[in-house]
Simulated assay, not measured.
Amino acid sequence: MRESAAERHDRLLGLVRERGSARVSELASQLGVSAVTVRRDVEELAGRGLLDRVHGSVSWPQDAASAAGPGGSGSGSGSGSGSGLVLGMLAPSSTYYFSEVIRGAHEAAAGAGARLILRISDYRPQEDQARTEGLLSAGAEGLLIAPGWQHPGDPAAFGDWIASLPVPTVLLERRPTAGSPLDGLDRVCSDHAHGVLLAVRHLVDLGHGAPLLMARADSPTALAVRSGYAEALAVLGLRAPQDVIESVPAELAPDRFDQAVRALREAVHSGVATAALIHNDVDAIQVVQRLAELGVRVPDDLALIAYDDEVAALADTPLTAVAPPKRDVGRHATELLVERLGQSGGAPRRHLMLLPQLRVRDSCGAPLS
């Protein structure tokens, strides 16, 4: 399978993290891509504060030096003495959505005088346990765990071990099956159902009928958006204009992506829908570009809201987007873990749900007359 940009970014970050610094030409050789591709990747990652650039070389940011890469641990953080708590964090990715979750966790750890060490699973849930054991071997006294689950069956297949970890553990952006052993752990999540309701209600308030949903099915967020869409329609007394349009990354499956865009165009041309919600906003930007080539204009012909708000504001027509509180998820989870480590035991576990915001831009247009 062709490597996605997000997967390449994670490999690039891992190389820089291991070495401290590297030249663009060396990274291109190690990654097996062109120097132009690496420069473009570095520009994007540096813009997010994940890398520093200096005269053809890149280095790991000084303020992120406490975050360890997939294969090791980093230096001290916060007080600088390295004598505080050691917190371990397992994340499925260090880019896109989870870069902000990690940033929030890192800031909260530093504020508590703790040291945060990080390992990345690359969305390989079968490797989560081994990577977590590595965090424990590196001295982690408490854990922040975002398993690399992608499919509905992954929690049952790759999650039971989490409930028996020997140190306090907080789940991040993951909602296990109700009543399962994992359901009794502390967790901090975005309330994606609320975010979808905000989007659907905004479009309805503008005079549109029920919007179409175009979404992936390859992550817990994608699945939560899908279930949240059904809940939002029920709350508002609406019926879906047609089945959810299955979305796939354009770079991984261009033919299937184009098929999905054409299905959306047909829905617009036939009058089935005048509005759509698309997860995620990278896909949404590419959808808007392809729709324009097919004669459908946003927002003139189609009002559109994206989900995630990572890059939605950078589209030619800035996209209205649902923004999960990613940074706050990392911060609150870390604060909860530090609090848990300071307790003698017996305190009730907590499930903290944080509400996304709707950031209104140009892609929804004016209210329908």
Rank of each mutant, 00 (worst) to 15 (best):
D63W: 04
S4W: 10
V322H: 14
Q286S: 12
V200R: 05
T177C: 04
L87A: 08
G20R: 00
R174H: 15
Q242V: 05
L85A: 10
L352Y: 14
V204F: 06
H194R: 11
P181R: 15
R340W: 08
E246G: 06
Q357T: 13
L277T: 01
V204H: 02
A267Q: 12
D300T: 12
G88Y: 11
A140T: 12
A284M: 06
D186F: 06
A313W: 08
A366M: 03
G139T: 07
Y97F: 09
A157N: 15
V272Q: 06
T317E: 06
E127M: 02
G295D: 15
R53T: 03
L236V: 02
S344A: 15
H279G: 00
T37K: 01
D328H: 09
L291I: 12
A250L: 08
A260M: 00
D243I: 10
V204I: 04
S247H: 08
I285F: 07
W149F: 12
E246D: 14
A178Q: 13
R11Q: 10
V167S: 12
W161P: 13
D52S: 05
R187G: 07
T132C: 15
A156N: 01
P125I: 10
G148F: 06
G342V: 03
E293C: 00
V16I: 02
G295E: 10
A156W: 05
G365Y: 07
A276T: 04
V311N: 08
P367T: 01
G74S: 05
S363R: 04
V360G: 12
R327V: 06
I120V: 12
V338L: 05
T95S: 14
G134Y: 03
G80A: 09
G184A: 15
V16M: 02
L213V: 11
L341T: 11
L90S: 11
Q30E: 14
T132E: 10
L171R: 04
S75G: 00
G179I: 04
A217L: 01
D191G: 03
D10G: 09
W161C: 08
T95Y: 04
L277S: 10
I120F: 01
H55E: 15
R239E: 13
C364R: 00
A114N: 07
A140P: 11
D316S: 12
L213C: 09
S93R: 11
P356Y: 14
A312F: 07
E127S: 09
G113M: 13
G207Y: 09
A91W: 03
A91P: 00
G76A: 13
L198W: 05
L354E: 15
P92V: 02
D63M: 03
A315N: 08
Q242W: 00
H55C: 00
V360I: 04
H332K: 04
A138D: 15
A253W: 14
R39A: 02
R216T: 13
V248P: 07
G179W: 10
I285L: 13
Y229I: 11
L15A: 00
P211C: 09
E335F: 08
I305S: 13
A273K: 01
R174C: 08
